[in-house]
Design a protein around this nucleic acid. Structure first.
Lengths: 104, 104
DNA sequence: CCAATAATTCGATGTTTCTAGAATTATAGT
DNA sequence: ACTATAATTCTAGAAACATCGAATTATTGG
């Protein structure tokens, strides 16, 4: 993942509503949750939520699958892993994360 | 670190200039770099840079120490670690990071 | 005290983002 | 065909952000 994509993804997660949505989806698990479920669960107006979901999908934080009338949103775990990996490698350079063992 | 602080910090890192600044500071190491050095290194106009540095300091991503005329900026490694920790715990729930070993 | 340097604050402008109601599209069930 | 449901798109206003030159505030050295 390159610099610009990382910045764009962090910017998306850097919004309280969207961070809530992502956390909600992670809790929901690999099957994800429908836009409606998220709306009810978090109490965000439909049009506002739709706007945020579209942004998250655009940068690859979530995937959206249409099943008849409902749209199922699934968190892209791999994307977040890549993001975390970037931060650890590019932004922690030489600094060890507390619970991570020393390299040999 | 709570939800709102996490969102605010991610939002700050979610700007290309600021992400560059943070990476620059990490490369510079624990001694950090002066605002002037960052400006020369990244080619960002002084007033623009000052604006970004102030924002980063506000959420705790960096620390600014004034030494006579120059301001030294130091990355707050711990802050980023907390951020990464939050993402791993709240947003990866049960998902294993590739290079991390399975728990016993 | 004066000139030079380092950095911030001011001010103004253009852009993006957020928000949410209203209208629209798509689909299912009867 | 009609109605209800799920979600998006449209639209528009407010708020926040980004940019950067010019003016300003320290601080150092001569």
């Amino acid at each position: 993942m390159d610099h610009e994509k990382v910045a764009a993804s962090l910017a998306e997660l850097g919004n309280s509503h969207r961070l809530s949505v992502f956390r909600f989806l992670v809790k929901a698990g690999h099957d994800g949750a429908s836009a409606g479920d998220i709306q009810k669960g978090l109490g965000i107006p439909a049009s506002t939520l739709s706007h945020h979901l579209a942004r998250m999908a655009k940068v690859g934080l979530i995937r959206q699958e249409k099943h008849s009338r409902t749209i199922v949103c699934i968190p892209e775990y791999g994307h977040l892993e890549n993001l975390i990996g970037f931060l650890q490698e590019e932004c922690c350079a030489g600094v060890r994360i507390a619970h991570e063992p020393e390299p040999l």
